[in-house]
Design a binder for these strands. Structure first.
Lengths: 168, 168
DNA sequence: ATTTGGTCGTTCGAATTCTAAGCAAGTAAA
DNA sequence: TTTACTTGCTTAGAATTCGAACGACCAAAT
């Protein structure tokens, strides 16, 4: 691996590695804080945050799993834990008996409100402090575009997500 | 400290979420490919890639774990799997009887060489295709700076005995 | 030489995660 | 309706992960 690969130049490789490394380190850091401050794992925080962010404070299991990039069974497990703690409730959807709507409780909202300032502060210190000038604007723009691109590109043998290729 | 504001503006929040989401999606995609093409998990690929990249093709367990952002016990487990498959060997260091040097075998090198083109191709398609102009340069610069910043800031109270990578 | 303190890697148990299989409910076509 | 297929979620079991405890080793004092 001493010579540049046919696909990526060294700057691209460096950016790729840096991206994965930064996200890992960041996740470790915020996970630690969330556990100490609210006894929440990063995944649990993500789930609750998405629910709080949603218009009605509730989402279907599948949409939640897709949003968090998580397996459905994994979400079932975590939703069970959160429900046991009274942070969310689960109830079958009126529209579709198959669906399960997950709803944040007031306790859940309060917990997120409690941990959010510290969470955000860590992110700021670790991620945004070393940025300057137009760094943020560019990063935001590029990553937003990449995200859209990835969400639109089904990874070949992709998960049966919202995507659909069964046209045969 | 700086400002008493809640922490992050909406652009910062968006960039943060996009970063975590992009890295998750990217890891999912490349993990899928690595398993199909070389029966490797992403972590295993990272371990082997770091070894191949190292000058002597071997590293200490601890340095490997720190580099990959992984727990030591987790690395012990994965190193065992890789050793069982003949992709690496483990031997106590001559310098320090406590250390274990992990070394890539020729088989390991061959496997990485086999999966690398496809791996890199996926990364290019997903991550770099939607970029243009100075996007890459900025991303590379910013993430590199952030990484250095994070590595310098002890993420955990005193867990992984950081501060060894000074002259690198 | 012994003590003290720190580092290295593994083992252990518990928690988390995934895939595959399964069931229930919706949809489409006959 | 019946049939077949699809979707939504859960269950089951295996695999992976982490943190804490452990034993071995090193280095610096004593």
């Amino acid at each position: 691996m001493s010579d540049p690969s046919p696909g990526l130049n060294s700057e691209q490789l460096g950016a790729y590695f840096a991206l994965m490394e930064v996200s890992s380190l960041l996740q470790y850091a915020v996970d630690e804080h969330l556990r100490a401050d609210g006894d929440l794992s990063y995944v649990q925080f993500q789930i609750l945050a998405r629910l709080v962010d949603s218009p009605e404070g509730r989402l279907r299991m599948t949409d939640l799993a897709d949003g968090v990039v998580y397996s459905r069974s994994g979400l079932t497990y975590q939703a069970g834990l959160l429900e046991k703690r009274g942070l969310v409730t689960r109830a079958p959807s009126p529209d579709d008996e198959r669906s399960v709507m997950v709803t944040v409780t007031d306790t859940g909202r309060a917990l997120i409100a409690h941990v959010l300032p510290g969470h955000v502060e860590r992110v700021r210190q670790l991620l945004f402090d070393p940025m300057k000038g137009r760094d943020l604007a560019t990063l935001s723009s590029v990553l937003g575009r990449v995200r859209t691109h990835m969400r639109a590109t089904p990874p070949r043998s992709a998960k049966p997500r919202a995507g659909r290729n069964r046209a045969e």
